[in-house]
Amino acid sequence: MENWIKVCELEDIPQLGARVVKGKSCEIALFREGDRIYALHDKCPHKGGPLSQGIVSKGRVTCPLHGMNIGLEDGRAISPDEGCTETFSVRIEEGAVYISL
């Protein structure tokens, strides 16, 4: 059963930007592109860079450390980069953002 947790309002996440959610076990990056929100483990599969600090565009984020491109939808590195980072389910309801851990 999915356990939805409210984390913030949609407006708290800047357009083409990100916020970091700190949970007990890991840090999650919430990205916003348009009115879509994506949640990824805030750790690049390459060398562990904080993806939340990267530049967001066309459904991907560019890691600030070495420029790996990670798909926001599935957490997979965009070819020719390789690797994958964990994704989480996101729901937007009445302007609030919920994630499922």
Binding site: C8, R19, V21, K22, I99
Partner: peptide
């Protein structure tokens, strides 16, 4: 300071 503060959750 949203850029610098993280959102905290219990889980």
């Amino acid at each position: 300071k949203p850029l610098f503060e993280s959102l905290m959750v219990e889980a």
